[in-house]
Simulated assay, not measured.
Amino acid sequence: MTTTAVDAPGRPAPAFTGTGGKPVSIATMLFSGTSTQIGAAVGAHAFSAIGPPGVVAVRQLVAACVLLPVARPPMHRFTWRQWWPTLLLGLVFSLMNLGLYTAIDRVGLGLAVTLEFLGPLGVALARSRTRLDAACAVFAGAGVVVLVAPGPSSDWLGIAAGLLGAACWAAYILLNAEVGARLPGLQATAAASTIATLLCLPVMIMLALNGKFTAPAVLAAIGAGVGSSVVPYACDLMVLRRVPAQFFGVFMSVNPVLASLVGIVLLGELLSAREWLGVVMVIAANVVTTTAPGRREKLPRSR
């Protein structure tokens, strides 16, 4: 696959670099996606005790506790050029996870992840405004309508939460590429996870004071932290240094399928034929728009 797009303002997108090249990158992204969905399903078992905000809070704490000793980011030496995308990434971590888990709690894992997947699709569509892209955007929108079947009985809060997760996932992709070029290793991820933990601290204090942290709930939330934060954050940061954000976006189309399968196996959530059709429509829109011949557009220079 040709990789001449621009991944961040003013900087050429990375090609499939490093040992193993494309096969290793694909394997890493597949592992990241599977881990994310299993972690989300495990975390869902804690909703009845501590709710989505509690799972997010523990998940971020776990991520910070694991990543900080490994990366040891010298945060006292960060320049403002390094701090501002790291601060934004920490905020995005919190909102992305809160939106996703709220959506999972209300509309199920498969539907929630499909809605969230509109974020990577938006990143891909931002590169061009061709007729093909417009058609794909309309088709993806139609897929969402088919998926959620809006009506008087629709869970609009769950749908809105999924869309919040989508917006944050788009920001996550772009910010990860940005901080990956400004800080080595996992320093940015560790620092951002620490910021996200501080943002969630009031939630943890409130739940602790009310005695909500039962052993099963804590264990499930920790599982979500390892599976959905530590593993994918590390994998994604490394991958986005090796591949273009555009390729990352199209490959992430596997996530709604993984989420639906994990939902069936671990949560007993069965999708109807209509819901599967909506999932496939969203995935197809992403695949078409990011693999069209001659796709070499640039992200806008917004600095």
Score class of each variant (00 low, 15 high):
residue 55 V to F: 12
residue 77 R to M: 09
residue 43 G to D: 05
residue 55 V to M: 03
residue 83 W to Y: 12
residue 24 V to C: 07
residue 48 S to W: 09
residue 32 S to C: 11
residue 74 P to N: 06
residue 86 T to P: 10
residue 73 P to S: 15
residue 61 L to K: 01
residue 41 A to L: 09
residue 60 Q to K: 02
residue 30 L to T: 13
residue 69 P to F: 03
residue 29 M to A: 12
residue 28 T to M: 15
residue 57 A to Y: 00
residue 22 K to H: 11
residue 41 A to V: 07
residue 85 P to G: 06
residue 56 V to L: 01
residue 58 V to Q: 03
residue 77 R to P: 06
residue 82 Q to F: 10
residue 86 T to V: 15
residue 23 P to W: 08
residue 27 A to K: 06
residue 72 R to I: 08
residue 74 P to A: 13
residue 42 V to Y: 08
residue 16 F to P: 02
residue 36 T to C: 05
residue 68 L to R: 04
residue 55 V to I: 09
residue 60 Q to W: 14
residue 72 R to D: 04
residue 21 G to K: 03
residue 47 F to W: 14
residue 55 V to K: 01
residue 20 G to F: 12
residue 57 A to K: 01
residue 87 L to W: 00
residue 31 F to M: 10
residue 36 T to F: 15
residue 75 M to H: 06
residue 77 R to G: 10
residue 21 G to W: 00
residue 23 P to S: 02
residue 82 Q to G: 13
residue 33 G to V: 14
residue 40 A to D: 05
residue 82 Q to W: 12
residue 62 V to S: 04
residue 85 P to Q: 08
residue 21 G to E: 00
residue 46 A to E: 08
residue 81 R to E: 11
residue 57 A to F: 01
residue 23 P to K: 07
residue 51 G to L: 02
residue 24 V to K: 00
residue 14 P to Q: 11
residue 14 P to K: 11
residue 63 A to W: 03
residue 85 P to D: 09
residue 35 S to I: 11
residue 70 V to I: 14
residue 69 P to E: 03
residue 77 R to Q: 13
residue 72 R to A: 08
residue 67 L to G: 04
residue 37 Q to Y: 10
residue 37 Q to L: 12
residue 35 S to T: 14
residue 48 S to P: 01
residue 47 F to R: 11
residue 25 S to L: 11
residue 15 A to L: 08
residue 39 G to R: 09
residue 40 A to S: 10
residue 47 F to G: 00
residue 52 P to G: 00
residue 65 C to V: 15
residue 28 T to L: 15
residue 25 S to C: 08
residue 80 W to Q: 11
residue 17 T to G: 13
residue 70 V to P: 03
residue 72 R to K: 14
residue 77 R to C: 06
residue 27 A to W: 12
residue 78 F to K: 09
residue 75 M to D: 02
residue 25 S to A: 15
residue 53 P to G: 02
residue 74 P to S: 09
residue 48 S to H: 15
residue 82 Q to A: 12
residue 33 G to S: 14
residue 62 V to I: 13
residue 15 A to K: 12
residue 33 G to H: 09
residue 71 A to F: 11
residue 68 L to P: 01
residue 78 F to S: 06
residue 58 V to L: 14
residue 66 V to R: 05
residue 51 G to D: 05
residue 45 H to C: 01
residue 19 T to D: 10
residue 44 A to T: 07
residue 68 L to E: 02
residue 72 R to H: 06
residue 28 T to R: 08
residue 76 H to S: 11
residue 19 T to N: 07
residue 39 G to K: 06
residue 48 S to G: 15
residue 86 T to D: 05
residue 48 S to C: 05
residue 60 Q to P: 02
residue 66 V to Y: 03
residue 47 F to N: 10
residue 58 V to G: 03
residue 80 W to T: 10
residue 81 R to M: 07
residue 79 T to I: 04
residue 44 A to C: 05
residue 85 P to H: 11
residue 51 G to M: 08
residue 59 R to S: 03
residue 58 V to S: 01
residue 83 W to M: 14
residue 49 A to K: 11
